[in-house]
Design a protein around this nucleic acid. Sequence first.
DNA 1: CTTCTTCCCGCAATCGTTTGCGTAAAAACA
DNA 2: TGTTTTTACGCAAACGATTGCGGGAAGAAG
Lengths: 335, 335
Amino acid sequence: MKNVTIKDVANIVGVSYSTVSRALSGSPEISEETRARIVEVCRQMNYTPNTVARAMVKKNTMLLGLILTDINNPFMSELAYYVDRQAHEHGYNILLSNSSKDKDQEREIFELMVGHQVDGIILCPCGPESSEALTQLTKRVPTVFFGENLREIPESYISVDNFRGGEMGTEYLYGLGHRNILYFGKRRNSTTHQLRADGYENACKKLGITPHYFNNTFNSTSIQNGYLMAKQLFSEKPEFTAIFASTDTNALGIMKAAEEAGIRIPEDISLLGFDNIRDASLPRIDLTTIEQPMKLLSSVAMDCLFQKIQNEQSGYSHRILYPNLVERSSCRKID
Amino acid sequence: MKNVTIKDVANIVGVSYSTVSRALSGSPEISEETRARIVEVCRQMNYTPNTVARAMVKKNTMLLGLILTDINNPFMSELAYYVDRQAHEHGYNILLSNSSKDKDQEREIFELMVGHQVDGIILCPCGPESSEALTQLTKRVPTVFFGENLREIPESYISVDNFRGGEMGTEYLYGLGHRNILYFGKRRNSTTHQLRADGYENACKKLGITPHYFNNTFNSTSIQNGYLMAKQLFSEKPEFTAIFASTDTNALGIMKAAEEAGIRIPEDISLLGFDNIRDASLPRIDLTTIEQPMKLLSSVAMDCLFQKIQNEQSGYSHRILYPNLVERSSCRKID
DNA sequence: CTTCTTCCCGCAATCGTTTGCGTAAAAACA
DNA sequence: TGTTTTTACGCAAACGATTGCGGGAAGAAG
């Protein structure tokens, strides 16, 4: 199990180990002849440079931290996928972990990662207040926040325009003829959802219809919870013709409850989601939704992070990207 | 950005830095009084030990590599979730990457990870032949393979009993009255799928029905590819009453094609999947399937890995777990 | 008062690299 | 041939921790 080191190959070749180091790093001060010999011996002994030792002197580990709330969320795993790809293109590896939406875990993981000397961190915050404890930590390593519009935080973040998405969805349903639109999902405890709801409300005002909310204080976006709440919703006589769900996972739960209640989508009620997770495009699901352009978002996030890593003192920047409406079959025109 | 080191706190406290190290690691040779002073100063300067430096001398990085084919596959993201959790419970962090089912990338990632001196690796192999290049690499770091029954490889692996799963599904459909069952999915190029198909064939033989295959040479399990192949299948007049899909993702594609072809599931055709990915439990999908017990599988894999990490020379072991049938609504009884 | 323990703590080597500096040998120049 | 420049490589000091060993001071034992 003992790994072969630079000294081992130096001994075999009969040069000093600094020569080996220089030969491998492509220094011009090494003759092509000895370089060839060194490279050959390295291959034979299959020497792999010890990145850890290198990191000690070079001051960079080529490691990027990615802190998710939950890798099982398809939204997050898509992010992980793109981040991983782009990291590797730049020679970085990613250190991944899940906070499970727990602030303490989030902080712990962050500290662990700075302990591992990661060169940068992409963090999907548990909530808007997570900043309090993190605000000092982010000073110790280049960080970009992902997915939350945290305007108060003096740190870079990337996010979709949730407010505009809320408006956009409402306008779309209005255009389809809906005048009685229910907004389904939590409003507090997360800037993201607050903004989506605000966008909805603002659009309602502009369009001259009255906003209706359900599930205002709810604090989980899982399918199961969406289902439970929707069940309760459908047990009361619903007055509306369309539901605007604050997340696709919630919409999935609504779909399940609707099915059980004998409510057809879109015939009886139109359903609009938000996020465009992969599941939304599944057969039979086919959910119309407001898309977060994940590929673009993650690409922008990585660019932002790499910039921070290079010019250490670049301050921060906020990038808010435009959402798209993805039309499928869960909403219908009414008159 | 300069991190505070053990020497910095030693200077402040007025002791040697070895004393600080011992105080922090809980050595009994340090008086409680100086330890308290040291701890306090560490807190004030918020010192975080440099894991990289520690790794150099302690010979372990507390890093575990996890090589997936694709984190976007819900099956894989579930694995990642459990692995991450258990790793953290043992004080490890995970280094994640995707091979995209490409052998060269797989090898590259593996090498990168040994460069980073990970203490162990969990690898979801691209295919059964991936062993050729990896067989040397696995000697350099404790490794366990996940998800493939690679009986020829002298390395530990964890997998569900794919053969038994193939049998189980076939028997289930037979029990429902089906005599004309089509096996849908690739057979070659992957031991996993070969075994599933073999299980199907074996059960057919035992039950006295003739096996039928579709899509034998196909080499991708994505929804889209399942859809395309199923489209072709349905354009010919199908003779069977049930389809046993080799993966849930394939089943999802079949579902989509069936919908378009006006074929109802389960009224016209019963559909059985394999894996029990999260999507299978979605409303409207509700796919009956053979489950891989992911939580258990990953737990066993981690235990196995930790064992190998401890007694370096423990050889290998193969753990094949029993699959479960998860009954939902995509299969119906016929007569 | 001397000697031996015991208790704390410091010195210095080590882990595997990178890199500034110094210096022989070879090449170029006078 | 003597001097300078270039080429090619070695020496040794970092990087930030851990840890075996040695030793001074205080207290106990003689």
